[in-house]
């Protein structure tokens, strides 16, 4: 085995490990949402190729308001679906679309675009 082959193997293995670590095992940034004066736990989520922020932390039992702002016209993100909560919303581009939820049971609730390519989740504690 030549040196370049050995280097490619080592490079491949380390790159693969990095991919696996980065996408699966690294700690995701969780954004904690505070309760506003109106009694809502209100968050703004930017939709552009993904949801930013995409992991949000809420308190159980208090009303939640997510304001989605879709800053793109790519059809992929035109719908946001909360399958566990049986809710959906059409996201009109460049408008703030509120989605109000009430989650009493702590747990993780995912949300996604119509085809499941963009994903995010609500952690309710």
């Amino acid at each position: 085995m030549t040196l370049d082959q050995i280097l490619v193997i080592i490079g491949g293995i380390s790159l693969s490990s990095w991919v696996a670590w980065y996408f699966w095992f690294s700690e995701k940034r969780v954004v904690k949402i505070e309760t506003s004066a109106g009694g809502f736990q209100e968050a703004v989520i930017t939709v552009k190729g993904g949801y930013t922020p995409d992991v949000l932390l809420f308190e159980a039992g208090k009303p939640i308001k997510l304001n989605f702002i879709r800053e793109e016209t790519a059809a992929c993100s035109e719908q946001v679906i909360f399958p566990d909560l049986q809710k959906q919303a059409e996201l009109t581009p460049f408008k703030s679309i509120p989605v109000e939820l009430q989650i009493d049971k702590p747990g993780e609730y995912s949300f996604q675009c119509g085809m499941g390519m963009l994903r995010g989740k609500l952690i309710v504690q």
Partner: peptide
Amino acid sequence: QFYTGAWAAFKNRSAN
């Protein structure tokens, strides 16, 4: 859209 989408996903540690 491939680049913006990929970058947005990458920032969130996800891929599509």
